[in-house]
């Protein structure tokens, strides 16, 4: 792939933009279309493009498979933690409004938190799936 200079230059320019767009979709999801799931997939897509360009080995130096495995569990646990936190504060499971004194602020805080959890899980799972499929044949 390194022989194709146009592809290499254009893709190198695109990857940071895709990553920033992923974070935009993640953290602007309350106001515009998108949310954790979409952001996670877009984040994974940036890494897939990076891998196509620079090889699996450099991608796994950036985010090792073990880190992706751990993060895919951490995202789900973060989501569940918000549920249990609202139980501990006297509400029902995932009833975010008890998290902060103001009902609306609590709901918004809870939504941002669980969307972050979903985003982390989806991005890490996407990377895990891609690593598993792409790394099957040995180093490329």
């Amino acid at each position: 792939m390194n022989r194709y200079i146009v592809l290499r230059v254009i893709t190198s320019l695109m990857i940071p933009i895709i990553l920033i767009y992923a974070f935009y979709v993640q953290f602007h999801g309350e106001y515009s279309p998108g949310g954790g799931f979409q952001a996670g997939i877009v984040f994974t897509a940036a890494f897939v493009i990076y891998t196509l360009l620079y090889g699996l080995e450099s991608a796994q130096r950036a985010i090792p498979p073990e880190a992706a495995h751990a993060l895919s569990a951490i995202g789900v646990l973060l989501f569940a933690a918000f549920g249990f936190a609202s139980i501990l504060l006297g509400g029902n499971f995932l009833e975010y409004k008890v998290l902060l004194p103001n009902d609306q602020a609590g709901e918004t805080f809870g939504i941002i938190g669980i969307e972050l959890g979903v985003g982390i899980t989806v991005a890490a799972v996407g990377l895990t799936l891609f690593y598993s499929f792409a790394g099957r044949r040995g180093g490329e």
């Binding site: 699996l56 598993s132 792409a134 790394g135």
Partner: peptide, 8 residues
């Protein structure tokens, strides 16, 4: 099913 795909 597929393993971790770790290259290292």
């Amino acid at each position: 099913v597929l393993g971790t795909g770790a290259v290292r």
